[in-house]
Simulated assay, not measured.
Amino acid sequence: MIEWSEQGQARSALWRSEGGAAAPRRVQLADDTLPADTAFRLACEGTALVWRGDFQNARQLLQALMRRTDRKTPKAAARAAQKLASASPAERFHLHRQAQAQRARTLGALLIPVEGDYSIALRRAPDLRAACTEAWGPADGRPSLVALRELLGIVGAHEWRKKGVEIPALGARIHPHYGVFSPIRGEYIDLVAEAPLPATDLALDIGTGTGVLAALLARRGVARIVATELAPRALACAADNLGRLGLEQRVELLAADLFPPGRAPLVVCNPPWVPARPSSAIEQAVYDEGSRMLRGFLAGLRDHLTPGGEGWLILSDLAEHLGLRTRDELLGWIAAAGLRVLGRLDARPRHGKAQDAGDPLHAARAAEVTSLWRLAVATPEAT
């Protein structure tokens, strides 16, 4: 809970933060009269601003804070460039993450009061009750405070959920829910669509997320897929998408950490690619601290493949270019798990950051390759 005084009255509200950020220790009321420079100084000092002015003016203030956060003096820009130039790829990555975290803290200082029914009692405030219900569940009557930046993210997720993401390999749209990673990077989906499919009527999809790969396997002719997922939001999202596609009878969803019981001729997994700590639920689709999911999949794959079966590991090598994991480490984990590589299909990324020379991680992103590793149980002759 966050507590403050307003017009001589004690006030309190539930603190909401998708990333698990600690509730601010200092809060101050703010409205349309607050200059952007003052707001920026207070935000940098760790003071959160409870907005009581016009909602659209709050959006403008947030944009002003963004400009001030991203603006650097020539000397500061030169120092930052020099620091990056002498840094290793791993150091560049960690510096980038630190800068992202600091930026998020500063921009997250502008707070919007949300009523107990998810309405917003500010001038020119839109009706965001449907979007908030999708993100947070049914309203429980408790007022809350949420960063405007996060609230706008909820609105964006609501629109993505309505519109969906076109998946050419599937010939349909996938509708990501709030907090579930959107399948906007199509190269890993195309690899699963193009890989030679083993003769099978059963497949396991480990960490299904939106359900896109389970749906693709079903469209490719696999009669039954068992898809696992640990996150409740992702399970609900996958169920929604499979229902929209009319595949709910062919895909069984299970709440499980990695593998379901049993074996299958095909086991597919697209784990997070970067071994670093996630800062929010949605980042768990990208960051896998200590490569926990990757190593868990490899270690358990042998016990969940039928004789002659294949495991498909879909993995970007971005971590290798960032100096966070080596190819020898990956191959060592594969061998230690009693597995061998049957083949590999590669694809280059098509997202905009790979072509953005101004991105601090451009060199790693430009060299990135996403691969589908076809794995099988190692035979005595192979070892």
Rank of each mutant, 00 (worst) to 15 (best):
E6A: 03
G8D: 01
Q9N: 06
E18T: 09
G19Y: 00
G20N: 10
A23E: 03
P24G: 01
A30S: 01
D31T: 06
P35T: 00
P35E: 00
D37R: 13
F40I: 06
C44P: 12
T47D: 07
A48N: 09
A64H: 07
R68D: 11
D70T: 12
A78M: 15
R79N: 03
A81W: 15
Q82W: 13
L84N: 08
P89R: 08
E91W: 11
R92S: 09
H94C: 15
L110S: 04
I112W: 04
P113M: 02
D117C: 11
D117Q: 09
I120M: 07
A121L: 05
A121P: 10
A121I: 05
R129D: 10
R129G: 05
E134A: 11
V146T: 11
V146I: 14
A147M: 07
R149E: 08
L152I: 12
I154K: 06
V155F: 04
G156E: 15
H158L: 09
W160L: 12
K162C: 06
K162I: 14
E166Y: 07
H177M: 06
F181S: 01
S182M: 15
S182E: 15
P183W: 02
E187C: 11
Y188H: 14
Y188T: 08
L191W: 07
E194T: 11
A203R: 01
V212K: 01
L213I: 10
A215L: 06
L216N: 04
R219L: 14
A223S: 14
T228V: 08
P232G: 13
L235A: 05
A239M: 06
N241E: 06
Q249C: 05
Q249H: 06
V251K: 03
E252N: 04
L258I: 09
G262H: 05
G262L: 02
R263L: 03
R263E: 14
N270W: 00
V274N: 10
S279L: 14
A281P: 11
A281R: 04
E283L: 00
A285D: 10
V286A: 02
T306L: 03
T306A: 06
G308K: 05
G311H: 04
D317M: 05
G338L: 08
D346P: 15
K353N: 14
K353H: 15
A357E: 09
P360V: 08
P360D: 02
R365K: 12
A367D: 01
E368W: 13
E368G: 10
W373V: 01
R374N: 05
A376R: 07
P380M: 15
E381P: 02
